[in-house]
Design a protein around this nucleic acid. Structure first.
Lengths: 340, 340
DNA sequence: AGACGATGTGAGATCGATCTCACATATATT
DNA sequence: AATATATGTGAGATCGATCTCACATCGTCT
């Protein structure tokens, strides 16, 4: 047997009142007689009336859903953020739609278009691309709240939550330099990605400050997956004079580097020192434990959601640009290098 | 400047036709003159008309969204599943709403109610509870497609995708027994959870088949988080005659056990053998690598989504009960025990 | 007594897209 | 020439909830 969900009309009919009166009773606005209100409540109860959020949304123009477009939910960094956003959204009576851009601009654009046609109230996006942000600008033009996370997009003036990528990377590389390293490798992500660029810039400025010449042979570019990072690391360390230390720009790549070193029989920190951006669960499982620059992952999603809901509540001030600090966590994967 | 999205009415006005004709031209049904169709297309293009899926959904009664209620997106097992579902949903022109029950029945119920009032087309749920499934039965009564994953719910007759938990657990414990272990510990999750019960049952039947008496002191119950698992493991191994081998029922608990052993100075596999249910990325990062019973994680989400979309396409056959096999992956965390 | 405000209710419009139906024309068939 | 049939188009209903407005019916105050 297929029951249809009860509508307001059904409730009104059962309570012997008009739809208007039923609506007043259920949403408590306007004048309603006590007795009438009771009748309506009882009828609603009896029919299991739940209201149709779709119809409400059509009328009000907005669905109580926020959209979230991330690079990849499987990346623990984004998973954590998604979780935090979901919790906060629920507290605010909203649901969360999740989409994964898989770091493809085209995918990001099409997802956004698809979600916009749902009259979703606001978005949290980790933009794939630096330029080409007409789709994001479009949101702003139509006054749809948008919060960027992890990355900012050029020319798009809106709220954002990021970390100090450049400073974090610099801290990491300065630490390596302080430990006597001069041939410092960089394993970085696709240059389209904001964090990758910023972290590389921190790497370079630390080298420059120490008077170490930049050397392209010390830099490997890979996609942000464990598998690609393994290959890139092997390539980087198969040169005749390989780096003595490696800085990796995210946790998946750090893990890839670890696997690569193991397969090459390279011992950490004896043969090579390693330091990664973004802490990860199992950084303390390895022997030695991995030294990392950690970012406050648990803050990012919450901050973004908080800002978004402030906007939804009508806050109309200049965009907030939140930027969290990073922290160097020294463990055991970096060794002092004396002379060459 | 705040632009409003263009409506069909706007397009019709610009093209100098009625709304009905505009709709026909854009959705290509019924008779439309060639010239008229062109005009409408051009007008739609010019206004950037995108259609309002909310209005369409109100009329058709269904929003092109599928809902997904999982235990926790942060668990890599669920993250993987969510990702696979999202990809398949997108291919089918649907979006994905994600909710986390946090293993609380009340949360699961309220989330489901909230999503149902959105007229969402179908659901994929990992049910928290065994009994008390009126909320799930309610979906079936109203003919809303439902696919259960990872767990089944008593008395709810619908599609499901699970793995052979009992068989997998038995394989693991039989392997330990074959390696000469008799004092085999079990680190398990909350008994409310289906997989936890099934895996314990496999553990017990393997012991029974080998004539080993069940011993409650060999069993520790914990929540499925790394932190709780650490504590539970420490308790379990602080007894005067602790187990010589441990079977953990999920990957987070395996990781917790690893950390606990490290902090207790217990060496694997020399002092204690370890085998976990569910493979995880970093099982091969440790030394030794961890022996596990793996489940085909990449199949589960895809299978569930495929079944769901078949239902949405109108398939009306008996519920499919898909059950994947597990595989014992022998690595280095179990050692042979000769005598006691 | 007449007027005014407070209280309670229902009819109907609205949100945007779609679909049925009726009404046109044009072409084909007997 | 008369009737079918094909082809185009628009008016209006519909989905469900909400809101405005008009219309009641009270009581209260001058």
């Amino acid at each position: 047997m297929v029951r249809k969900p009860a509508t307001l009309k059904d409730v009104a009919a059962l309570a012997n009142v008009s739809r208007a009166t039923a609506a007043r009773a259920l949403n408590s606005y306007g004048y309603v007689g006590d007795e009438t209100a009771q009748k309506v409540q009882a009828a609603a109860e009896k029919l299991g009336y739940r209201g149709n959020r779709l119809a409400q949304a059509l009328r009000s123009g907005q669905l109580p859903i926020v959209g979230c477009i991330l690079g990849d939910i499987q990346n623990p960094f984004f998973a954590r953020i998604a979780h935090d956003i979901e919790v906060l959204a629920r507290e605010c009576g909203h649901n969360l739609v999740i989409g994964s851009s898989e770091e493809e601009l085209a995918q990001e654009i099409s997802l956004l278009a698809s979600l916009r046609s749902l009259s979703i109230r606001g978005f949290i996006v980790a933009p794939t691309s630096q330029g080409n942000n007409a789709h994001l600008q479009g949101l702003i033009d139509e006054n749809v709240p948008l919060v960027l996370i992890d990355r900012v997009a050029e020319g798009v003036d809106c709220d954002s939550v990021v970390v100090d990528n450049e400073g974090g990377a610099r801290k990491a590389v300065e630490y390596l330099i302080g430990m006597g390293h001069t041939r410092i490798g960089l394993l970085q992500d696709d240059m389209r990605i904001f964090t990758s660029r910023e972290r590389r810039s921190g790497y370079r400025s630390a080298l420059a400050a120490a008077g170490i010449a930049a050397d392209d042979r010390m830099v490997a570019v890979s996609q942000s997956t464990v598998e690609h990072a393994v290959d890139a690391t092997i390539r980087l360390f198969s040169q005749k004079s390989p780096p003595t230390a490696l800085f990796t720009v995210d946790s998946l790549m750090t893990q890839g580097a670890l696997l690569a070193f193991r397969s090459m029989g390279v011992s950490i920190p004896h043969d090579v020192s390693l330091i990664g951006f973004d802490d990860f669960n199992l950084a303390t499982f390895t022997d030695p434990q991995i030294t990392v620059v950690s970012q406050p992952v648990s803050e990012i999603g919450r901050a973004a959601a908080r800002v978004l809901f402030e906007r939804l509540a009508g806050k109309d001030e200049a965009p907030q640009k939140i930027r969290f600090e990073t922290k160097l966590i020294v463990r055991g994967s970096v060794s002092r290098r004396s002379g060459v």
